[in-house]
Design a protein around this nucleic acid. Structure first.
Length: 879
RNA sequence: GGGCGCUUAGCUCAGUUGGCUAGAGCAUCUCGUUUACACCGAGAGGGUCGGGGGUUCGAGUCCCUCAGCGCCCACCA
């Protein structure tokens, strides 16, 4: 079959993917005797379409999956999608608003129905896109964070933690988002700097500052540092009467060390219901807490005339009122402070006290390596003791810093989309309440009790994502059998036994806390195992100008789906890993994608050339290296193959790619194929091509498989499951000889280009390198002839020890004098440098022997070279 | 306030434990229709590795310090 001149990826990619799926080569087999290798794919949020960031993680994980598959391992790359509770919920609510309705109007069931429809559509789109990226995932094992098995795992985990006292319910201050009407975890809060007015009010004998006068109605505690000299006359617990917003109040003095005497007047009033810091002060001293703002962001009846008003409206009016009473001291118009917003939907966070579910991270109720530990301790231990490696290592510090400051994790959310908390309540006729936490709903009905009602809240989406590595490996049929315990399920699930712990978790550093840490937390607790041995963190992809891609600048967003049809998936994949290191962000560059489209086309034409020579129905045979070039390319191929493997084993994707690129393009195409036009070895050309297709396959699966299928040397075999090549060793001396040839060719090209001459003849005397390779050198260097003479004249080649001359007349050669002079200068410097180094006794004494020896031989070579350059220069200078 | 990262060619970035004359892609310049490929080939130019100091026989690489940029965490009423 003939290959066309230009590789058009769009014509092959979907057929090739279909072929892989049909051939079932991505399916894992837990009963296989082969070594297992597993990766749990980070499930993308079902919010629409894949982004360039998804393309990056799919590429990195696919490289690992394919590379290990080519090494004969049984690979499981388990794909999935995430219900993304808060993100999806926000999208649906926005749509409802646009339609002029609300979730309350349509009700919980209708809301969930809508949401299911939306995520169903998103999922289908996204799965298609993941295939388009070439992801070699096992689609038969596709999982979803909201499917039945996962729901059971969520409930099992919750109930076990509840029984162990690790989950508790309590009234705590939480980050309340009045827009989405839910609380969010500390990690989901982002801070936005804003200019605001900062007011100073008279408060009894004190002056207090605030940017939020609307919270001040209930303020009846005035707090200062116990050591603040200005206020020694006031004692803790003293009270005083003062005029305040809605009339006279009694205030109490509280001394607390959390107050910064340097800030403002060093005195503040507190609003424990709406501030974490104030809440903690109130807790320490047993003070009253009162709610001022309701859950929709409006003032409560305590505000009297302001009751029912939204914050923004009330603020100015309250200030006006206080000013009218003469209590406003001053207003700073340019006060810069950070306001907390929900990163999903950007609602302004209003701290509120609410009854919520929490995970206790400090209770030593977890058995780990035979000791009782807290969740926090286990999370620290697995990294400290290297059970899990983080790549790059520096993120270990970031991780520890986060863990050290970890507070109890609030896991309940007031949104409807998600895993519902598996807790039920009922009351008896006297109003007593009973609580039941269970994997399944309670069934008993007792006399005198009302019916059980399930907690209306859902769980933080990361609670279920945290179970990802092991819950996805549980047998789905077994999971329906509630007579089995969770331990039974794990023990009886073949996938769990074969693939857990997983080998690598590959994800972005931005979800190190959200996800990586949470997986460690729940997995160690439930399974007693780590979730993965290594976690590789990639960086973010920024726009071409180095700034974040942002919806507010649509032109900054690079959409993989517009790139693939134009440049091909392989080009996109290689562009995404080229020159990129773990944990570092990269800027998008069109140059990279073009370079890699060209690279794919280069490979295509290499294959085309070889196929033209070989014809159809070629059967690979054992290659016999004959020429210097043959030995050289074999040794290069061997070296490159080893190096690529070594880099990939160590997660150095970019370096592996670079070795591949230069081997294929520079060594194989530019040198070996060109050389083969003079001295042809068809079996070896074919052998190299086959090896190249395999080692390039993890990076560029489509073009390599397309070529392999077109060549069809091995019938209908699939490249994706071939064996990583073990290259025959080559004769080192012969390979070295080719390097000598390269030196002669390169210098000849340099001289003829510099002198703008063509058709020169190369003379040599009694040199086997030249005699045996005359035709080759003639061709590569574009010479008229290469002939043996008794004594040559013309331009003597200086970069080789072989004695040869370019037949260039003296007049033309004069033009080369300047070049020679420069060469001579440079070479002199090189010699001097080496001499200096060897004259240094300390160097000779202290440096390793090999290094010194190496320097010696370098010096010898450099001197020889200098001598011949000098001789040549002198000869010309005289002429 | 605490921490992390970056600063290497015009641009975007590599450079594993310190050791050949510091590399790549893109861009630039010159030449080129030769049995694949102009999405190509041959050749060239371009860097005091952010500044300063130190350790070492030897520093882009290790240590200190300063400067600029980016990010994370905490958050002050």
């Amino acid at each position: 079959m003939k290959l066309p001149k230009i590789y058009e990826p769009g014509e092959y990619e979907s057929d090739i993917y279909a072929l892989w799926e049909k051939s079932r080569v991505f399916l894992a087999d837990p009963t296989s005797k082969k070594e297992h290798f597993s990766i749990a794919m980070p499930p993308p949020n079902e919010t629409g379409t894949l982004s360039i960031g998804h393309a990056l993680f799919l590429t990195l994980q696919d490289i690992m999956a394919r590379y290990n598959r080519l090494h004969g391992k049984d690979v499981l790359w388990l794909p999935g999608t995430d219900h993304a509770a808060l993100a999806v919920n926000a999208i649906i609510e926005k749509k409802l608003t646009e339609e002029g309705t609300t979730k309350h109007e349509i009700g919980r069931e209708a809301f969930l129905e809508r949401t299911r429809e939306f995520v169903g559509n998103s999922r289908e789109t996204m799965l298609g896109q993941m295939r388009a990226m070439g992801a070699s995932a096992d689609w038969s094992r596709l999982r979803y964070t909201l499917d039945d098995t996962l729901n059971r795992c969520v409930n099992e985990t919750f109930v076990k933690m509840y029984a162990d006292g690790l989950i508790y319910r309590g009234s705590r201050i939480v980050n309340w988002d009045p827009n989405l009407e839910t609380n969010v975890s500390d990690d989901e809060v982002v801070y936005v700097e804003e200019k605001a007015k900062f007011y100073t009010f008279k408060y009894g004998p004190f002056e207090i500052g605030t940017a939020r006068p609307e919270t001040k109605f209930g303020d009846k505690y005035v707090v200062m540092h116990p050591d603040d000299k200005r206020y020694t006359k006031y004692k803790h617990g003293d009270t005083f009467e003062t005029e305040w917003i809605n009339g006279p109040i009694t205030a109490t003095i509280i001394k607390d060390e959390s107050v910064d005497p340097q800030f403002g007047t060093g005195v503040m009033t507190i609003t424990p219901w709406h501030s974490l810091v104030d809440f903690e002060i109130a807790e320490r001293h047993g003070l009253d807490k009162e709610q001022i703002i309701d859950f929709h962001g409006n003032l409560l009846p305590i505000a009297e005339e302001f009751a029912g008003m939204p914050i923004a409206e009330a603020r100015d009016k309250i200030v006006e009122k206080l000013a009218g009473k003469g209590l406003l001291v001053k207003t700073d118009e340019n006060y810069a402070h950070n306001i907390a917003v929900n990163e999903r939907g950007k609602g302004v966070i209003e701290p509120q006290i609410r009854l919520q579910w929490f995970i206790d991270v400090n209770k030593p109720a977890v058995e780990w390596k035979g000791e009782q530990r807290s969740l926090k301790e286990v999370m620290q231990l697995v990294i400290r003791e290297n059970d899990i490696d983080i790549v790059p290592e520096r993120f270990e510090k970031v991780y520890f810093h986060w863990i050290d400051n970890l507070r109890d994790w609030c896991i309940s959310r007031q949104i409807w989309w998600g895993h519902r908390i598996p807790v039920w309540y009922r009351k008896d006729t006297d109003g007593r309440e009973e609580t039941y936490a269970g994997v399944q709903p309670p069934t008993d009905e007792s006399e005198g009790w009302h019916e059980w009602e399930q907690d209306p809240d859902t769980l933080d989406t990361w609670f279920s994502s945290g179970l990802w590595t092991w819950s996805t490996l549980i047998d789905q049929d077994l999971a329906q059998d509630y007579s089995l315990t969770l331990d039974d399920l794990l023990r009886k699930s073949a996938d769990f036994q074969a693939y857990h712990p997983t080998n690598v978790l590959e994800t972005g550093w931005d979800i190190l806390f959200f996800w990586v840490a949470r997986m460690i937390l729940t997995t160690t607790y439930i399974t007693g195992e780590i979730p993965f041995k290594t976690t590789y963190l990639h960086g973010m992809i920024r726009a071409e100008d180095g700034k974040k891609m942002s919806k507010s600048r649509p032109e900054s967003i690079i959409d993989p789906l517009t790139i693939i049809p134009k440049y091909g998936t392989d080009a996109l994949r290689m562009a995404l890993i080229m020159g990129v290191t773990p944990g570092n962000d990269q800027s998008w560059g069109w140059g990279k994608i073009e370079a890699n489209r060209n690279f794919c086309n280069k490979l295509w034409n290499i294959a085309r050339y070889i196929e033209d020579l070989i014809g159809d129905n070629y059967k690979p045979s054992k290659p016999e290296p004959a020429t210097a070039a043959d030995h050289w390319i074999l040794s290069k191929l061997q070296h490159s193959t080893d190096l690529i493997g070594e880099h990939l084993d160590n997660y150095r994707f970019s370096e592996a790619y670079e070795v591949l690129y230069h081997f294929v393009w520079d060594d194989f195409a530019d040198w070996y194929i060109e050389a083969s036009k003079a001295q042809q070895n068809l079996p070896l050309l074919a052998y190299c091509l086959e090896a190249i297709l395999v080692i390039m396959h993890p990076f560029a699966p489509f073009v390599t498989e397309t070529i392999w299928q077109t060549l069809a040397w091995e019938g209908d075999s699939i490249l994706a499951v071939r064996e990583w090549p073990k290259i025959h060793s080559a004769n080192v001396k012969a390979a070295k000889m080719f390097e000598e040839i390269q030196a002669i060719v390169t210098e000849s090209r340099f001289i003829t280009t510099a002198l703008k001459t063509s058709g020169a003849t190369l003379y040599y005397t009694d040199e086997s390198v030249l005699r045996e390779n005359a035709e080759l050198i003639k061709r590569l260097a574009r010479l008229k002839d290469v002939t043996e003479v008794r004594d040559g004249n013309g331009l003597y080649l200086t970069s080789t020890s072989a004695r040869c001359w370019l037949d260039i007349d003296t007049e033309t050669a004069q033009g080369y004098l300047k070049e020679l002079e420069g060469k001579q200068e440079a070479q002199k410097r090189a010699v001097e440098q080496l001499e200096k180094r060897l004259a240094n006794k300390a160097y000779v004494d202290n440096a390793p022997k090999e290094i010194v020896e190496q320097t010696n031989s370098q010096l010898e070579e450099a001197r020889q070279l200098l001598a011949s350059i000098q001789a040549e220069y002198d000869r010309f200078a005289k002429a």
